[in-house]
């Protein structure tokens, strides 16, 4: 219930209507959107029960490891109602053609594989919010100071997922496990996304805001 309440409002991409469509414009729009979503996601993390009790250093380490998984999982959940399209924002939906134009066809296809997986499973909002918190708590940072505290956070979130599934999906006793088993593909997809945006950064043609750059550098 706390995670459902903590879930941030949708934000808007607001692509500049005066700039002609191009790969640079699409990537600039996405990087700007990602930067604003990151600010929102850091605020969200503080509402995960137990997260604010971690040391500031461990909160930072988890976010530095897990931020892209959180961004992608949010795009995936928003896209569940559509067919072969990614809802980066309510006003920024990418189809195959736009993905090609932005040079994001491979990455977006990888994200669509996750969408397909969750569609088949019938992912619910309750499951989505817990999985997102689990992805953060389980982001496998190499720099955790108090790994027992992080383990306790993982246990609490894992317990919440199991309780939800026991109550709402008694017909499938393995549903919680199935949910957890989607996380490797999320990790893999996030790694691809990081790699792609690191090479865009090196290219230097797309302006990026400071928080996005800071977190991209944490992964480099």
């Amino acid at each position: 219930s706390l995670l459902l309440v903590a879930e941030p409002e949708a934000i808007f991409a607001m692509p500049d209507p005066t700039v002609p469509e191009s790969d640079i414009k699409a990537l600039t729009t996405l990087c700007d959107l990602a930067d604003r979503e990151l600010v929102v996601n850091i605020g969200w993390a503080k509402h995960i029960p137990g997260f604010p009790s971690l040391s500031l250093a461990d909160q930072m380490s988890l976010l530095q490891s897990g931020w892209m998984e959180i961004l992608i999982l949010r795009v995936v959940f928003r896209s569940l109602a559509l067919e072969d399209k990614l809802v980066y924002a309510e006003d920024y939906i990418m189809d195959e053609e736009q993905s090609k134009l932005a040079g994001l066809l491979d990455l977006n296809n990888a994200i669509l594989q996750l969408v397909k997986k969750y569609k088949t499973m019938g992912l619910e909002k309750e499951e989505f919010v817990v999985l997102k918190a689990i992805a953060l708590a389980n982001s496998d940072s190499m720099h955790i100071e108090d790994s027992e505290a992080v383990q306790r956070l993982q246990d609490v979130l894992h317990g919440a997922l199991q309780d939800y599934e026991t109550t709402h999906h008694p017909e499938d006793p393995r549903r919680a496990g199935k949910m957890i088993m989607t996380l490797p593909l999320l990790r893999q997809t996030a790694a691809r996304a990081i790699q792609h945006f690191c090479s865009i950064k090196q290219d230097g043609r797309v302006p990026m805001h400071k928080l996005f750059l800071e977190l991209l550098e944490a992964k480099a």
Binding site: V39, I42, G43, K46, L56, M60, Q64, L211, E214
Partner: peptide
């Protein structure tokens, strides 16, 4: 960790 100033600031803000 010094490099991650914005993340640090955002986590320290109370909102």
């Amino acid at each position: 960790k010094e490099k991650h100033k914005i993340l640090h600031q955002l986590l320290q803000n109370s909102t």
